[in-house]
Simulated assay, not measured.
Amino acid sequence: MKAQTKEPVRLRQKMLSNGNISLYLDIYYEGRRKYDFLKLYLIPEKTSKDKERNKETLSLANAIKAQRIVEIQSNAHGFIDTKKCERLNFIEYMKSEVERYRSKGSIMYAQSVLNTTHFLVAYAGDKIAFKQVNKSFLLGYIQYLNTAKGRGGKYLASSSKSTYFQAVVTALNRAVKEEIIDKNPAHLIMREDRPISDKKSREFLTYEELKKLIATPCESDIVKRSFLFSCFCGLRLSDIKALEWSNIENLDDGTGQLKLVQKKTGEPIYLPLSQNAVSQLPAKLDDGKVFHMPTTWKVEDILNKWAKSAGIDKHVTYHVSRHTHATLLLTFGADIYTVSKLLGHTNIQTTQIYAKIVDDKKRHAVSLIPNI
């Protein structure tokens, strides 16, 4: 007599205190057991409608059970190539992701993935197979990010840790779609165990603070000029570093126009340059870069010292210039649609954040009037 094959998935029931019956799957495969609670319930059968409802619930539970069995058998019969999973190097896959994003024009995200790859190698070396990237590996990677240092020898900011973890999650999601792995192990990690970026308010400079900065000497003339230039046109640091004289035209009357493709979005923008912006351009020494900038961490260090010298008690990063440009435009009467276009936003909701900042400033100003 032929031995009966044991089912890897069984539908089981659990009586609840309220009289309902919870349905769940008992899954036992390759020596491992887990329970899948379906959030489906049988109710006491008091009427014919109750019986009909329970019949439909059981039918749905059995359909899910059948689907789980098919998934297990598909894996067992090689539809997910487990040898490929063992053979493929995860670091090489991450590097290919960098090139894929670069080819799409997503330069900023490609840089984030490249930074992520650097920390993965520092954590576990460059010989990481996909099969090694499990829940335990990812939890260890999170712990490593908590102690890792970035450029300038400083511990990683919460936003950086969140970005470097999420880049791994995104790559693993793509690997699932490419059938390299059958599931993303990051989905097993609880939200509270993941790196979470702090939600910080958008720092900006007021008109008076900007005048203070202009009047205060800075240890680097090129950093000062580039920062003030961005305050008057809204360019990101990545675009400032890439800006060439060929991107700027019509400088004859003290104003001008700037055209370039944004590094972050890959979108072209055309910006009119005010006299304030043009006045911050350095002397043209050649036809190459407009601003020959130091490293990013050095720029940030110079900006902080400069702001303190000006008596400004704010954490000034380069991106503050972009926030300053947006809030100044809205404060002095520009409409939100125009500001959105000038900033090169692809979604006007991003611009509305600045409009809320300006509204809050107005409310605060009104509240300064004492009760009469």
Score class of each variant (00 low, 15 high):
F229L: 07
S160M: 00
E203V: 15
Y354V: 03
N20Q: 15
A215E: 14
H323Y: 04
Q275C: 12
L138I: 13
H323D: 02
K264R: 10
L120C: 09
E178N: 11
A186C: 10
Q352P: 00
H315L: 00
E203D: 13
T338D: 09
N276K: 15
K95L: 10
M293L: 06
N89R: 08
A167F: 04
L330A: 06
K55H: 13
E7K: 14
W297H: 08
L114M: 14
G311Y: 09
S321K: 02
T255E: 12
H364L: 13
L88Y: 13
V278Q: 05
V121I: 15
S22N: 11
T350V: 07
L188R: 14
K212L: 14
S226C: 05
R53Q: 10
K95N: 15
W306Q: 02
L172E: 03
G150E: 01
N75G: 03
L213G: 03
Y109N: 04
L11K: 00
R151E: 01
H77S: 04
L139Y: 07
L210D: 09
E7A: 09
A310E: 07
E86N: 12
D50H: 15
H345R: 05
V366K: 08
K314I: 04
A129I: 09
A307S: 10
Y270K: 14
K135N: 10
S321H: 01
G256N: 08
Q143N: 15
L368I: 07
E219H: 08
H292F: 06
I69S: 05
S279K: 14
L38Q: 13
K83E: 11
F137R: 11
K65R: 15
H323G: 03
D252F: 12
E209K: 11
Q275G: 13
E99R: 14
I189D: 01
L258I: 08
H345S: 04
S246A: 13
L328G: 03
V176D: 04
L38I: 12
Y318T: 00
E92A: 13
T295R: 08
L172R: 01
A167K: 03
Q73Y: 06
S136M: 11
G234N: 05
P185H: 09
D26Y: 12
G31P: 12
E208I: 09
Q262K: 11
F232K: 01
D287E: 11
I214Y: 13
R322Y: 01
Y28V: 15
I72C: 02
I128H: 00
K95C: 10
G153E: 01
H292E: 06
E86S: 11
D198C: 03
A307D: 03
D36I: 09
E249D: 12
F119L: 08
T317A: 04
A110I: 03
F165A: 00
S103V: 07
A310Y: 06
T47S: 15
T82C: 01
R236Y: 06
V223E: 01
K305Y: 03
A283W: 05
I248F: 04
Q73L: 11
A76R: 13
L271V: 09
A122L: 06
K199H: 15
G234T: 05
G333E: 00
D253F: 11
K177H: 10
H315R: 07
I64Q: 01
